[in-house]
Simulated scan of single mutants.
Amino acid sequence: MENLLLLHGALGSAAMLEPLKQALQDSFRVHTLDFSGHGGKPLPQEPFTMQQLAQEVLAFLEEEEIGSAHIFGYSMGGYAALSLALQHPERIRSIHTLATKFAWSPEAAEKETKLLNPEKVAEKVPQFAATLAQRHAPQSWQQLMRHTAGMMRGLGNSPILTAGTLPQVQLPVQVTVGDRDNMVTVEETLWAYRLLPNVRLQVLPATRHPLDTLNTEDLSAQIRQFIRQVAVSPTPIR
């Protein structure tokens, strides 16, 4: 069996990917990890960066003695996977992104980080705050949120995936987005699709951003299909 690594999104955790992991275990050796500060993993004192998250993926592959793996990255996880592919393409067989935001600018970062105010979240959506507290205990979800906002500002000022770098990612990629995603537009996903040289595009109908709104059986089937297509025809015809 081939290795498949599942990467969670910002403020998420490996536990959120457990249903998908279970659904795919009959086809792959499935691995998950928690990024720093997520799922109870220690939070660094300094705000983290996307480069750091990519290095955490590489470190995980090294620790688990995984020579190469297919990667499924949800949201931020997809960005981290593609960032790693720019530096270590030999460690990645293919990348399947879902709901990954590609269009980062100072304006986009400002819009996203307005939603990452811990005090306002605790006041206006206490149920979500309680979920975050449980998901990331014993770490501070408030500090994690601040770190995440800092990372987004860093991407806004200096994005890693650009019109200059995306064409360098030669390995097979599938970019997937929901047509009703309120955080990631179909247009920005098309922008990435047009720049990646070895890529497939999928737009999911009537689909929003949250991972838990997707049907696990359908998503696992899509991941299987993509990896099988890569094995049969590594270079797709657009």
Rank of each mutant, 00 (worst) to 15 (best):
Q222Y: 12
K111C: 01
Q142E: 13
R135E: 15
G150A: 12
F28P: 07
G40T: 01
P42M: 00
E123N: 13
S83N: 13
S83M: 06
A99Q: 14
Q222A: 08
G40S: 09
R224Y: 05
K21Y: 02
V184C: 09
L6W: 00
G178H: 01
G40D: 03
L82Y: 11
M16F: 06
M50P: 13
A137G: 09
V199H: 02
L11F: 03
N182C: 11
V57I: 08
E217I: 07
P42R: 00
Q225W: 09
P138W: 00
Q22W: 07
H88N: 12
A14T: 08
S94R: 06
S94P: 08
A149G: 11
Q51I: 08
Q134M: 10
D26Y: 06
V232D: 14
K120W: 14
E107Y: 04
A163W: 07
L53S: 00
L20S: 12
Q134N: 09
H31C: 06
E2F: 05
T148R: 05
N215E: 15
A129L: 13
A129P: 15
G37W: 07
V30H: 10
T235C: 15
G9Y: 14
V199K: 03
N198T: 06
A81P: 07
E2A: 11
L211M: 03
L82K: 09
N117W: 04
A108E: 13
P159I: 04
V125T: 06
L144G: 14
Q143R: 10
S83V: 08
K120A: 09
N215A: 11
P42C: 01
S140I: 02
Q51G: 12
Q143A: 12
R200V: 04
A81M: 12
E2K: 07
S140T: 02
V175A: 00
D212G: 12
E64W: 04
I223N: 04
K101C: 12
P19D: 00
A130W: 00
A80T: 10
A15H: 11
M145S: 09
A10N: 01
M152C: 01
T235V: 08
S13C: 13
V57R: 09
E56W: 10
H88P: 08
A133W: 02
G9S: 12
I71K: 05
